[in-house]
Amino acid sequence: MSNYKLTHLKELESESIFIMREVAAQFEKPALLFSGGKDSIVMAYLAYKAFYPAAIPFPFVHIDTGHNFEETITYRDELVKLLGAELIVGSVEESIETGRAVEEKGFSASRNKLQTVTLLDTLEKYKFDAALGGARRDEEKARAKERFFSHRDEFGQWDPKNQRPELWNIFNGKKQLGEHFRVFPISNWTEMDIWQYILQENIPLPSLYYTHEREVFERDGIIYAALDAIPRRESEKVEVKRVRCRTIGDITCTGLTLSSADSLEDIIGEIASSRVTERGGRSDDKRSEAAMEDRKKAGYF
């Protein structure tokens, strides 16, 4: 027999595919939460691989804040077509119009937190019993505590002090009526793993991830796109700079990085020498020390 050793990327891929198939087998109505960022894109490709040549047995759900970069939406629609997936869009704007969510006011207003309302409403509307998310444990300190199969009570809440044990690769997706699971197949991937995988698999990305010229302004040391979704103070000057996104989320909380990286190799080099985390540029985490934990407890992604 030949001697065989999986590379760590192959091992991570295999683990993630195993978990996606486990979800398809254990749940009646799963969905894949698709944000348009690199992690969801990798998730989409993993799902395609896991079930090929059959269609991906769950729809993609995009919780749309209405404050997206145009490129994200174009890319999303093309990808869905390419992979033959079904797309469901939950609209935060609609949640605001129907009074389910209340728009924040002021200069640092963001619809990021409101997404939780729309997300939980969408899960309930379609009776989804498992939502696959592309969160990674290396992203943030509360995420570092997350199980692969994360139980949510009937209000969609996470109880980090009382998580179910999760042993070996045995996943227990049993739940009471009205409860659901969040499942994180790429928990063990790091930001570097994601980029290496994108390179290895030759996955096309939205142009936002590569360097481009854009009108931007600076606030609290973070560079934002100068678009209507973020109201600017008079003192905040708009300049044109060469930037790219390190993560992509809602416009109001996506910080841009000054960069001239125009290939995956360049991006990987940039990340290898970076001294700040990718979420260092996300204002949603900077609101308080336990901002992510609090949002997660309430049912956020």
């Binding site: 300190k141 509360a142 570092a144």
Partner: peptide
């Protein structure tokens, strides 16, 4: 020790994964 309760009590409550 990233959870609020862990920081308040100065103990680890659940596994943290680091890379």
């Amino acid at each position: 020790d990233g959870l609020r309760a862990e920081r308040e009590q100065g103990i680890t409550i659940d596994v943290a994964y680091r890379y």
